[in-house]
Design a protein around this nucleic acid. Sequence first.
DNA 1: GACTGGCACTCATTTCCGGCGAGTGCCAGC
DNA 2: GCTGGCACTCGCCGGAAATGAGTGCCAGTC
Lengths: 341, 341
Amino acid sequence: MVGADDRRLDVLRAIVEDYVLTQEPVGSKALVERHRLGVSPATVRNDMAALEEEGYIRQPHTSAGRVPTDRGYRLFVDRLSRVKPLSVAERRAMERLLVGAVDLDDVVHRTVRLLAQLTRQVAVVQYPSLARSSVRHLELVPISTTRLTLVMITDTGRVEQRMVELPEPVPAEDVLHLRGVINASLGGVALSQTPPIVADLVETAAAEHRTAMRALASVLLETLVERTEERLALAGTANLTRGNVLDFPGSLRPILEALEEEVVLLKLIGEVEPSTTRVRIGDENEIEDLRAASVVSTGYGPGRTVVGSLGVVGPTRMDYPGNIAAVRAVARYLGDVLAQN
Amino acid sequence: MVGADDRRLDVLRAIVEDYVLTQEPVGSKALVERHRLGVSPATVRNDMAALEEEGYIRQPHTSAGRVPTDRGYRLFVDRLSRVKPLSVAERRAMERLLVGAVDLDDVVHRTVRLLAQLTRQVAVVQYPSLARSSVRHLELVPISTTRLTLVMITDTGRVEQRMVELPEPVPAEDVLHLRGVINASLGGVALSQTPPIVADLVETAAAEHRTAMRALASVLLETLVERTEERLALAGTANLTRGNVLDFPGSLRPILEALEEEVVLLKLIGEVEPSTTRVRIGDENEIEDLRAASVVSTGYGPGRTVVGSLGVVGPTRMDYPGNIAAVRAVARYLGDVLAQN
DNA sequence: GACTGGCACTCATTTCCGGCGAGTGCCAGC
DNA sequence: GCTGGCACTCGCCGGAAATGAGTGCCAGTC
């Protein structure tokens, strides 16, 4: 026979599972009926009282059943649940992701929609971070003699393009030369490593190329390295309206607003150590407006590296095991897709 | 003194304005208090009865005030309102748009957020359509001897990139040659005009370049011309929760879902003739889920051309004059920005 | 003929109240 | 340590009554 402490945890697990499923406070009687706990409702009530004492569950009002607290979910996630393997149908949906994806934008959009579909939550995918990519190729396309477009292609598939104004006209063959020099120095170099190299390029440039090189260098450093703009894709906001109204007390407003703030979102799903999945439950969130929400996020990248993160946002009352599994699976899959390029 | 018919229209205008402002059915008494109509509530009641008879307003229930119908809004938009000029602050916000915009993505994102802010509605901006752009430059970046990245830059600033698998290895100098040939033929050509030229390129290619050219041509035609994927940016979904719950009977669900369907959105804001602003009110929308919403949209582009569209989506109870003005102003401004590149 | 004041009427909304019942806490007993 | 029993709490439901905004209509006035 299991010890009393063990049973208490079983009761907590049962409460979480039932509540996630039914969205309604769960009472002692219903609990013993739906789960083979082997004890009577009265006993469960005692356990519940203890759990409430410890802060794992609470009563919305006196004559109602119990609801897990953030702390209860935390314990559930940490110790009471196993990651749920994806179903065959889900796996198949994932396999379909790759076919026909035509470029990085396409891949990211498909990924975020897939994740939203699998989890029925709001999904967020960060584009591969420029800061963590390296240069595959830089192209200079002359628009006029004093203006050119700088196109950078990274190993993660991102393509960035910037307008560069040249202080003085530069003939076409010089542009070709500049391109050659730059690519020879920067090809394969991680963007974060470029500043000294770029500085060196300006130093060592022939006198007649100096000003042009300086213009290029400043655009490169200022808009591609320092002000490294991170991009995001979002999907499944409609899922916020899925559950009970109680999920987000008051209105969806603050949540929707937070989801539109890219900086906030990045902070939310970012900051992951490699190959861990991070779960932030309710209060644990630093962002005020998302105190009623939970976030499951992880990093992704080809192989063991991390070039970006992705995750889902939903009510604290969410299917943690399922969502964690989905987030992990999608991250791994996205990493594989990136590795193929 | 104004005729009775004129006054009836004044009453309709007053009803629309009040309702948009207060979000509450407006009664005869409140109407004469807030607007100098110069007649008594009883007279207004008679007018209201007539307007209701004609289908311009209706009563949510017997003992309530009147609310405009879709037809009422239509009349209001067509005949009773003047486009409201933007305020100084709004103009200034728009001017700030340009500074520091770093590439097309940036411009589009800033634009859509600006539009959402100005109108306090959901804003949608279509990226400049590939179909309506022309080729500025094509670049071929070798990844390996049998694989290269095709980068296309258009005059509207879009940069697209596709992976091309070559059936047999192609030496670097041949790639350069191919690039030269392609650019010579396609530079400045509208994408819609490219198919015969591309076909010709394959025809006339030297035997040793034939297969490579064929691979390039197929990628070009299939993924950039035929399957011309349109892109969109969206902002301000949080504004949906702004107004009364009554705005969208039931839930936001269908609206949010529709907003995630890019195809639907494109249909919604697209199909505009040059330099007209289109207003679709409630029922006039073809999309089932958006029958409770109105859409104000227009095209934009450098000069008089149209390369994409933008617009706002909101409850039928919206500030039409203000939103029309904002949509037009932003479209013109975006066109100007594009023209500068 | 157009407008107005007056008045009866309608009906959604609000408030109050009693009954119901899910669920609890506690206690005595096994 | 578990269980059955029991009194108790309190949110929710449904009906009744009060409220009041707003209307339609009519007779009267300019």
